[in-house]
Design a protein around this nucleic acid. Structure first.
Lengths: 227, 227
DNA sequence: GGGGCGATTATGTATAGACATATTAACCGC
DNA sequence: GCGGTTAATATGTCTATACATAATCGCCCC
């Protein structure tokens, strides 16, 4: 039995982490590694391609493959889905829509959604619950014009309805810290001004901006990943 | 000229985003797609493998490939490197070590580094500067026992010295929000209690925990990625 | 009709060969 | 030397083929 490309990726990755080849150094060519390990060049290529994707190595034709100056540059981030997050902790998920009206779009959000300021969008705020206790406060602007006609998200949270029904082409995701305003403090039952982690997400479809979401998490919330 | 696997990935990704196949639906088998697009099955496989890596589709042998219930679940996060971040904004990077002493490891951090509480580690705080102005405040615990003998990080920031010289095997990364304490407020020249985004990073080597870092960013700092 | 087992099928992966492409290194003429 | 052209080389990728593996489907037996 021979090595698979994932094994090879691990092996070579380990040699890099062990500083056998220091950052910036050239590593042997594909053909050489293929001979060393007794596999086909395509297998080595697949392994190296995978390492390159994670930013561990940098490859250029003719110039060869070298260890990145700053290896471990990219991490995969699992995008949080609130319901799964809550259920993953063994709690029952629930939510309550606390506000729902058509309002003119504020300038800052209009810019992020690449829409005109003051356009009338649907403004929803939702409180997400874990076992009945506040878990996160959502502030969403929704561009109804970008939605299919039958927009009926009964039962599901708006987010999951969107994911399931509306085509999207891309979006932006950001993490920031902000002090709890009056609304957030009341919803999450924390002191005004408390430092909260906020997730901001914008999604775009073929027609332009679909939705803008600010998610205010409870104090102590962490977004985690591994290197 | 035929399609490359990256083109194919885009094409199929677009058909998925356009809801041609809704979440949960089966998509045609590799052999079918290969015939449709006039390419080899290996090419289709490479494209689908890439989509699966990003969580857009889920694949099981014999059962086929289906669109994920919640597509766009994983994003690639470029791990921030302060110097590059500052220089990327066209500012001059600098730093100043504001504290450097051997101290007993606090319980909370010991737990995250998987070391014994109270172990004597080197405790450094560093102020990172952009054009001379405070940009971020770093609070680092360093396990000198896990370092090569000649630990002389003159000139470089400790972080870059570590990346370049110390083998590591993995680590954890987290984002959280916290109010500025007295030290952070003074260093960053903000009001105590201000909501700051904090990056926490722990790295492990063959000998165990190497370093634990808390990076306190200035107000308004955002960690961004795209979907 | 229920249970178990084997055939079928879709993906997973390896291989050898071929050609494309980018880039460096070498060469040559002036 | 200097500049520009050419050859050599490492990666990028596709193809066709082969076999491995997992899971499902359907048949057969009881």
């Amino acid at each position: 039995m021979s090595l698979g490309w994932e094994d090879l990726r691990e092996t070579i990755g380990a040699r890099i982490r062990a500083r056998e080849w220091p950052p910036g150094a050239l590593i042997p060519a594909e053909a050489q590694l293929a001979a060393d390990y007794g596999v086909a060049r395509a297998t080595v290529n697949r392994a190296l391609q995978s390492l390159a994707e994670d930013g561990v190595i940098e490859r250029r034709k003719r110039a060869g493959t070298r260890v990145a100056e700053l290896p471990a540059r990219r991490a995969r981030l699992e995008i949080p889905v609130i319901r799964l997050e809550v259920e993953g902790r063994g709690a029952a998920y629930g939510f309550r829509v606390t506000h729902d009206a058509e309002e003119p779009l504020p300038a800052e959000i209009a810019q992020r959604m690449r829409l005109a300021e003051g356009a009338p969008l649907r403004h929803l705020t939702t409180l997400h619950l874990a076992d009945g206790a506040p878990h996160a406060h959502e502030d969403r602007w929704l561009n109804m014009a970008a939605l299919p006609q039958a927009a009926d998200f009964a039962g599901l949270s708006v987010n999951e309805w969107l994911v399931a029904h509306v085509p999207f082409q891309g979006g932006d995701l950001a993490f920031l810290a902000a002090p709890a305003g009056a609304a957030e403090a009341a919803a999450l039952e924390v002191a005004p001004g408390a430092a909260l982690l906020v997730t901001e997400r914008v999604t775009f479809g073929p027609e332009g901006g679909i939705t803008h979401v600010l998610l205010w998490h409870r104090p102590g919330h962490r977004v985690e990943t591994t290197l």
